[in-house]
Design a binder for these strands. Structure first.
Length: 204
DNA sequence: AGCAAGATTAGCT
DNA sequence: GCTAATCTTGCTC
């Protein structure tokens, strides 16, 4: 146990928790705590929305293999992958090689945040995550980790991912139903007439 | 070397 | 709902 981690949000999610099918991890991270430890105090938020970027996924940065930008996606499970898009950053937890879970939104629990962690860009601002944090190990880091939380009482819903063009219809976005910190309201706001109802419940 | 597109967000109509 | 901001990545020439 690294020095400094002796408070309430100690025990990090073990590497084995990341070394599972990406969809399983995306769902399992709901209700877990993202924890940043600073000399000034902890910042803790409960993860309420994720997206899975899986193998052979045209929307994934890893689709065309390793590059300089995405090399963290091919690092160990539990590695943090941070990239820049437009003028913001987005953070992912790496699962299996070339796959990751995008952290889209979290609910503040402890500490003050520079921005509300609602939406992937704001979540990074809330935790001061930038490209310099790319490659950090969420299992062993002194600064940042994910800690298991109680099973969510909210229903978990599955919906298409946000902001992508390729494979846009695949339901790989996971969220806690009704949670106000989810970045986009569910059910899905743009629905084709005759299309299946979005926000389908997949479990309780 | 140049360039089009992007896992976003804030602000305006 | 729409668009600009803003800049990096990675593909193409």
């Amino acid at each position: 146990m690294p020095r400094g981690w002796s408070g309430a949000f100690d025990a990090p999610l073990p590497r084995s928790a990341y070394e599972r099918p990406t969809r399983t991890v995306a769902r399992a991270l709901l209700g877990a705590f993202l924890v940043r430890r600073e000399p000034t105090g902890d910042r803790v938020a409960r993860i309420v929305e994720t997206e899975a970027y899986v193998a052979n996924d045209p929307a994934s940065h890893a689709f065309r293999g390793p590059t300089e930008r995405n090399r963290s996606m091919f690092s160990r499970p539990g590695t943090l992958y941070v990239y820049r898009i437009h003028q913001v950053h987005c953070a992912n937890a790496v699962t299996r090689p070339g796959q990751a879970v995008l952290l889209r939104a979290a609910e503040p629990v402890v500490g003050r945040f520079p921005a509300p962690p609602r939406g992937p860009g704001r979540l990074c601002r809330a935790f001061d995550l930038a490209r310099a944090d790319d490659g950090l190990d969420l299992v062993t880091s002194d600064r940042l980790r994910i800690v298991p939380g109680p099973a969510p009482e909210e229903t978990i819903v599955l919906a298409p991912r946000i902001g992508i063009r390729l494979a846009a219809e695949r339901p790989l976005r996971f969220a806690l139903s009704g949670n106000l910190w989810v970045s986009t309201p569910l059910p899905w706001p743009r629905v084709r007439r005759g299309a299946p109802a979005p926000g389908k419940e997949i479990g309780s």
